[in-house]
């Protein structure tokens, strides 16, 4: 078992265009999370290429990957991944610490984003004091802090009831409408149905790709 090479992704050939809203589906172990990690520059392929804006990520240094994440990418996680010791505004402003942003400017920006996701009166609350839906909205606001062109969402509605899930999807749709590229992993059909394009994976391969639907 230990010696066996597990190919989490194998022969995936995928092009995602600028401004697309893509849902990646598939059973657990199908490689969809690995794909998202690759797209998010958290991981590098052992073989093959990932071109982000024509740049081969595999050849980049760790610090350059960090810089790329900081400048281009926004992350939304299933379990929100907010830092418990920070309040809402501080959580939203987190990516700005690692971008080049003055703290005063960062706070103003974070407050604006908190307002945008409807959390104006929750600014100084800690994540623990918020509902799941509110936490995910903080996470979405955070993913927007550095104004990224690509947003990667890993089962953003997985921990939410369907009503709050729909609210979150509405927010994502809004971001898509602004021209951002969104790649979302989900295993719920009705959530995937809200995307433009659905890529279904199985055993590390792309099993089905709907292409961009209008």
């Amino acid at each position: 078992m230990g010696d066996a090479v597990v190919r989490a992704l194998d022969g995936v050939d995928l092009v995602i265009g600028k401004g697309e809203f893509v849902a990646v589906m598939g059973p657990s172990g199908s490689g969809k999370s690995t794909l998202l990690n690759l797209l998010g520059c958290l991981d590098r392929p052992d073989q093959g290429q990932y071109l982000l804006d024509g740049q081969d990520v595999a050849s980049l240094h760790d610090d350059e990957l960090s810089a790329l994440r900081s400048a281009r990418l926004g992350f939304i996680f299933q379990s929100f991944n907010l830092i418990q010791s920070l309040n809402v505004v501080q959580n939203i402003g987190l990516p700005l610490v690692y971008g080049d942003c003055d703290p005063a400017e960062a706070e103003a920006r974070s407050r604006k984003l908190a307002a945008r996701v409807g959390l104006t009166d929750r600014c100084s609350h800690r994540p623990m004091e918020l509902s799941g839906g509110q936490q995910q909205r903080v996470a979405i606001a955070r993913s927007l802090a550095n104004n990224p062109v690509i947003i990667l969402a890993d089962e953003p509605t997985g921990n939410l009831d369907s009503r709050t899930g729909n609210e979150i999807m509405a927010l994502l749709a809004e971001l898509h409408a602004e021209g951002r590229t969104i790649v979302m992993v989900t295993h719920e059909d009705d959530i995937a149905a809200k995307a433009q394009r659905v890529v279904t994976m199985r055993d590390g391969r792309v099993q089905h790709d709907t292409g961009v639907r209008s």
Binding site: S66, N81, L82, L94
Partner: peptide
């Protein structure tokens, strides 16, 4: 650990 992961995902370099 998790906080470190979050910070890294959001653009923190190792040196940060």
């Amino acid at each position: 650990t998790r906080e470190i992961g979050i910070r890294r995902a959001l653009g923190a370099r190792r040196s940060d």
